[in-house]
Design a protein around this nucleic acid. Sequence first.
DNA 1: CGGATCGAC
DNA 2: CTATGTCGATCCG
Length: 866
Amino acid sequence: MDDTKNACNSSSSDGVLLRMGLNDNKAGMQGLDKEKINKIIMEATKGSRFYENELKKDQQVNQRIEKMMQLKEKITTQQLLKAQLQVDKLVVELEQSRNLSNTIVHIDMDAFYAAVEMRDKPELKEKPIAVGSMSMLSTSNYHARRFGVRAAMPGFIAKKLCPHLTIVPLNFGKYSKVSKEVREILAEYDPNFMPMGLDEAYLNITEHLEERLNWPENRRRFFFNTEGTTESDKDDINMSAKFNEGGCSSSPVLFEDTPLINDDPEQRDQLVENSVVFGTSAEEVVKEIRFRIEQKTQLTASAGIAPNTLLAKMCSDCNKPNGQCRIVPERQAILDFLKDLPIRKVPGIGKVTEKMLKALGIVTCSELYQQRALLSLLFSEASWHNFLDISLGLGSTHLEKDGERKSMSTERTFSEMNTADDQYSLCRELCRDLAQDLQKEGLKGKTVTLKLKNVNFEVKTRASTVLSSVSTEEEIFAVAKDLLGTEIDSVAPHPLRIRLMGVRVSGFLSEEERKYQQKSITSFLKSGKEIGLLGLQPGKSNQEYFRNKSEASTTGSFFDKKRAARQLNDENPSPNKSVGKQLFHDRKSSANFVEETKKVTDLEDSSDVRKIFTCPVCFEEQSSDSLEELNSHIDVCLGGTLVKDTVEITKNYDSRENTCNFLPQLKNENVDECQKNKPDQLAGTDQSASTSENSISNSSEKFTQIVSDKPHRERQPSNLSDIARNMCMKQCLLPERISQDSEDHFEKTEPTEENGSSCFFEGKEGSVLICPVCNSEQKTRSLMSFNRHVDVCLNKGLIQELTEKRDFPTKTSNMENSNRVGALSRGQQCTNPSQGTKRSGPTTSQSASKKAKSNNSKNTIEMFFK
DNA sequence: CGGATCGAC
DNA sequence: CTATGTCGATCCG
């Protein structure tokens, strides 16, 4: 396996269009061959703004590849060998954790939308059709695919490929109805099945299989849907399209509940004749499912059966359409399946990743495995772990319910829009729609993101996070319009020419937080009543309270003036000017401050009778007796010097992360968290921290040593894995405790997660702050950037003192972790989560690698894919 | 945190 | 003429 021979250079320029046309064009029938398809597409595309943008994106990918190749050139044989050891250690762990005991099924409706349309309009049968519009197609039927007409292709191009193409508009209502019918069937086999969109689902039928063993035959008997069925239907249960006459609507004939006790032999024969009995194997179950789907909906489905979701999904592709495929639960069967499988077929590996891997000479999954050591050096941990899982055929073996939603958005494409008036009103409209959707799910989020696509197809997103959650049209728009204003300003005096706008809200409170907040608010109100501060009437809701309060403070608070100004602005958005240039304070209303402040103090101690407010500007505790007092204090703060007070904030230095977070001097739990660590670290008594630091610095030292030690590269040995293993056993190289070092490599990322970044202080953005370390004025776009600046300062100056005393290492700059090539997602929820998350826990990683060290060094890995 | 990118349906 | 909409994940600065 002489790897380096594939010097597949990443020549550019190709590929832009390859993604569109392409693919298997079986001979026979009309249709176009690949070449013609690509030619037509190219002609339709060339010169368009869209195309220009595609070229640009392609160049970016090529640059990424170039960077990666440069990185690769610098890798020495020794590094590679070391990586091989570490990766193979992980491979052993992964192999040991392989779980083949589940039976996962992936069901995939064939050309779903198109199939539904064809079912409902028989005149479309035998014709090439696509579902969507002239500007975008969602899917096409198999007939159309022969012409290169595919999903995600604009209709007008499809028409050029296939002039007879019928384009049917989307009809989502219908598809969801059909989808629901299908899901009803699926639920019988796995009540916890996981739908992925309207036309796909995963099932875990492990339990069903067990129960089914005891089922009488009649419980596995199913009937053909119609009176008009013929003999041949029985023989071929996969046969489709034979039931089109017989009232599609009349629901399926499922007699499983009606016991087949019928003394009339003639009738019984009749029944038996029109029925099929399915066996008890996984294949039979899936045939049964597909049979029932077809009987019920007249639509066909394909399916994959395998021990995990990744494999099930991939093998459902094998016998499309209207077929199924199983990977039996044996390791070798899995490896056989993967051997020649192109990586592009793997969910989670898309166009870009495919291209990057191809540049490394990797096209199939077995090659992905062979290059595992190299990949671990070139890609991020998440990425190469994912690659490793893929090449071993590991995936999640149970179906997790998807967690809570993380964001909600709406976006629209339109013909060029270039006046600010239009843009603002569209923005408002989007906010209105979004607010409605949010309301339906009762969600509020703290981050609003505006998305814009200009007429050259360049996409930009601009986000802003506010202190308290937003959900109404006005609240969202208040944020979004500022973002939009900034963008309009940024191109002024030219108009902003856009073809798409979108608004997204994210940063929802988690369920726990929601409860917590609720509790703290109510307890605050209670305590507020106790001190007779609020004069609340018993029945009043929180909302009313806030509204009243903000109205009450209208008496002249700085915020309210600004808000009034803003509202004026809203009514009459000024085209290119000034909208985006409002004062930074403008984002948050005073009501927000009050609410937020309250929350913080309440978290700390809700039983405290005396309320302590923390001024969001100076972070000083204001033990005030009234909100008015607080508000006027805030006004003073805002009018006066921001900076002097800023110095009062407490510093917290986290030695492990080399980060320094500034905290307001309030007693919320975050502070407590941070301060817990502080004394130890400063006193240098935290053993674990300092030892882990040392080992990291050691390993990075070693690393540089190795780098400088061998500048040239040479042909790689034929079997890295073996050589690396030998070296390990003989200890002939890298004598300094190879295994331990490699453990460090695995572990060093672990401890960082914990107590990191929860301690950022929140406050106004966009101000000028004085760095307490270097004393220079820092004009900051965000608090984060200010924090970052202080980090740097501390690293350079202050901390050095500490370092001398305590032998603090400074930044651990380690190429192994910095320059990696960007990553892949590990697919959607479903692809691999369990395997991925579980295994890298600190304990498992540690103990497993110890195990590996003691007894596994020789019986490690036999060659895969031989 | 914010922005860009990737990938899936 | 005419190249989607919605979501989650990851990476980098």
